[in-house]
Amino acid sequence: MNTRHTIAKNIARFFENDTFVNLGVGIPTLSANYVPEGVEFLLHAECGFAGEETVVPFPWESLDDRDEVIRGMKALSDEAGCDWRTGHRDLCDASNSLVKLGPGAACFDSSISFAMARGGHLDMTVLGGLQVDEEGNLANWMVPGKTTNGMGGAMDLVSGAKKVVVAMEHCSKSGEAKILKKCTFPLTAVACVSAIVTELAVIEFIDGKMVVTAMNPNITKEELQAKTEAALTFAEQIDVMDIVE
């Protein structure tokens, strides 16, 4: 099983037509590859656009040669005939990839971008997680004792989006549970999570409970609960997750 792609493909069950969605760096961005046919929505990138994006390759082989990078930047300029349709050196997404935009996109400054995020204008935000607990608390920006990365826009995105979906591996690399009774890492926000998508299960917060609504067909309920510290409830009808090999 390809863990990252399995998670990404199962995020897609939350995509809905005519919505405005922020996809975080990493697995959430990968989920854009699995949008069901006929479903169209607008992406929000906190660096300043709303629209449909396609990543364009960097016009240089590596960042090691500054002259080559500058030549590449010149190749993605107005003077070289580039614009939002082709990709441009002044157009990136929140992962800092250079992108091109589809028709109907809009660009804006950061204060407008975060008015969208905080002000309830996003239907959904999908982001990575380190820990989620029974109260719907999320920790995703800092592992104590490790390098401090910073929270970026995560705290604002989860404070305003109508639905918050956390995409993460079910357990840590050392096999410890990440879905807990109480988060131990510094929080990103309290009581904000609507659903968790892992390679083993889709867990939705329904009436204050963690309800398993889809499961990996290669695991039992008992095995799933054993890998989860939080108490799980199982829906009457549990979907079979799509597995990407």
């Binding site: 300043g48 804006f108 400054d109």
Partner: peptide, 11 residues
Amino acid sequence: FRYTAQNFNTM
């Protein structure tokens, strides 16, 4: 500004 290069600059 071009595209997303406005970001924090105006404010």
